[in-house]
Design a protein around this nucleic acid. Structure first.
Lengths: 140, 140
DNA sequence: CAGGATCCTTGCCGATACTG
DNA sequence: CAGTATCGGCAAGGATCCTG
């Protein structure tokens, strides 16, 4: 008999991203957040990185967003936060087992983006040009 | 030399999601958007779906967001929009080749979310409880 | 060094009304 | 049926200043 932990306390059903309110949909956003993906990718399979290292690696991230993203990931059990009570402070971040379970997926997401970004960019330009032409009242 | 990151938006470079202004980072968000993922998953490998079908399948989506998501996907070359000039109107959506190139990835993302949502949920609860306890120094 | 706190702008997104 | 148009709340996210 399955006596493992229950599903959502209020919604007894299989996790299904198509269902509104299902936590799976919320969990999905962890693999969707702009910075979330990059932080996980930066931490990588077994890297340990300090706050400053991450900030330098994630071009364009602000201190606030990095802190917030790391907190969110820690809260969701994806990232370990190791604090050395030294002065100046030293904090090291690494992926948990749960976080590690996403690295292949994260890599695949980034690979797709890097491999198809040009295609997307061109499609977007073409679409916008078509839209601009269609705005012309009477012609063509 | 040239150890800095000035080779971003305008200068040609390999697509790299770590670089600010790189279009690959923008393309990545297509695999990140909450509704984007679900629309692609709903359209599936070779489905053709009408607007109403999609709306019913994507529990909780508003008409506005569905329209907007479909437009964005069409603009980025991921979705075909086929309009029948009938009355009442009939519009069918399907994935383009580029869109199809993401279905395995999209499925993997949703699978991960559905398989680990409970783990994430529990981690979140545990984290919040810890946080609540740590905030107890004053009142009691 | 690794943040916390604050202010403020952007735009996401829902709700509603209307159209061909 | 499949949209478009508009208003508005509110949260994401950036910039800046401050601290142990």
């Amino acid at each position: 008999m399955d006596t493992t932990l229950e599903h959502c306390a209020s919604t007894p059903h299989e996790p299904n991203v198509f269902l509104d309110g299902c936590f799976a949909r919320e969990a999905m956003t962890r693999l969707g957040g702009k910075w979330t993906v990059l932080v996980i990718k930066a931490l990588g399979p077994q890297e340990r990185m300090r706050f400053g290292e991450l900030r330098r690696k994630l071009d364009g991230i602000t201190q606030k967003m990095l802190t917030q993203t790391l907190r969110d990931l820690e809260r969701d059990g994806m990232v370990n936060r190791l604090v050395y009570p030294t002065m100046p402070p030293r904090v090291e971040y690494s992926l948990t087992k749960l976080g590690l379970s996403t690295v292949d997926l994260i890599e695949a997401i980034c690979d797709w983006a890097e491999q198809h970004s040009e295609e997307v960019r061109l499609a977007r330009i073409a679409f916008d040009e078509r839209a601009t032409r269609d705005v012309q009242p009477i012609s063509g």
